[in-house]
Computed example of a mutant assay.
Amino acid sequence: MHRGHRTLLLTATASYAVVAAGVLTTSPLVRLDWHVAMFKPYKQWPCAQGPLDVFVVAGQRGPTAVAALAWLGWRSWRTGSARPVLVLGTALALLNASVGAVKLGAGRLGPHYAHTVGSAELFHDGMIFPSGHTANGVVVWGTLAYLAGRHRRAARVAAGLMAFGIGLATVYLGTHWVSDVLGGWAAGALVLLSLPLLEPFVAAAERRLGRFGRFGQGGGGGQDGRGGQDGRGGRLGGPDRLGARSPPARRPRPCPTRSVSR
């Protein structure tokens, strides 16, 4: 892990800890939460509510995970490598474990279900901190950028804009506090920055799935075993697929004999 990576990882960890501490201690961050929630942006600018209701689906775990897995599964089949699917699966598993544990521990209620003005609304069996939409947007779109072959810089910019927009959209819609979104950004960044450290485990899993790699090689080409295909689509060890018979073998001509005169 190089110095820049280590610095980013420590920064994300510290940011996550600061946001969590701010929520737990009912700091000015919680007062900001209430100020924005009572401002009700969705009532101030109601025309944006419809489009943003659709846009936040880009951060919803189910649709985004299915779409990303479908795309990366196709890439794995084309390249003969299970790594893209394994990397995304690892990222989603780490996201669910880390964010889910904090959600269960905090038990925070969202702005629409808050009881006491000025309270952090913790330990009420809620599931709002950190923002799952935001963290999922960071992880899914960030993982796609992490796996991008060409145009990686553009993919990173697009992933950052998507994650930023999803977080702000949840605040606008009143489904999350500002601190939820800040925690979601930090939680998602921690998962992304942990992916390079988990590459040895991904490589080990890919080696165990060696048969998957052979199946995907060449876009579903040659198979091993009896009746496999050669590179031209014909059957190995049998007649060609059109059923044409092989030409009859030619008999060797007899050698001419010479008569010996006595």
Rank of each mutant, 00 (worst) to 15 (best):
H2V: 10
R3V: 09
G4I: 12
G4R: 15
H5Y: 08
A12R: 05
T13Y: 01
T13G: 08
T13F: 12
S15C: 10
Y16S: 11
Y16H: 13
V18R: 06
G22V: 07
G22H: 10
L24H: 04
S27C: 06
L29Y: 06
L32G: 08
W34A: 05
H35Q: 13
M38F: 13
W45D: 01
C47E: 14
P51T: 08
D53Q: 14
D53P: 00
A58L: 15
G59W: 05
Q60C: 04
R61C: 00
A67C: 08
A67W: 06
A68D: 00
L69M: 14
L69H: 12
A70L: 15
A70E: 03
W71I: 15
G73P: 02
W74S: 06
W74I: 13
R75Y: 06
R75H: 13
S81F: 06
S81L: 08
A82C: 04
P84A: 07
P84E: 06
V87K: 05
G89W: 03
T90G: 09
T90F: 11
L92N: 00
V99A: 02
K103N: 02
A106G: 01
G107I: 07
L109W: 12
L109F: 09
A114G: 10
A114L: 02
G118M: 07
G118W: 07
A120L: 10
E121R: 11
E121N: 14
D125F: 15
G126W: 11
F129V: 03
F129S: 03
V139M: 03
V139Y: 01
V140G: 02
T143N: 02
Y146K: 01
L147M: 02
R156H: 13
R156V: 10
R156M: 11
A158M: 11
A159M: 07
L161I: 11
A163D: 01
G167P: 01
A169E: 04
V171S: 05
V171M: 13
G174H: 10
T175Q: 10
V178P: 04
V178C: 07
D180N: 09
L182H: 02
G183H: 04
L192W: 09
S194P: 00
L195P: 03
L195G: 05
P196Y: 13
A203S: 06
A204Y: 00
A205W: 15
E206C: 02
E206Q: 13
R207K: 12
R211N: 06
G213N: 10
G221M: 11
G221W: 12
Q223I: 03
Q229T: 09
D230P: 03
G231M: 08
L236G: 00
G238P: 00
G238S: 15
R241K: 00
A244G: 14
A249K: 03
R250S: 09
R250N: 04
R250E: 12
R250P: 07
P252W: 12
P256S: 11
T257I: 09
V260H: 12
V260T: 11
S261K: 12
R262A: 13
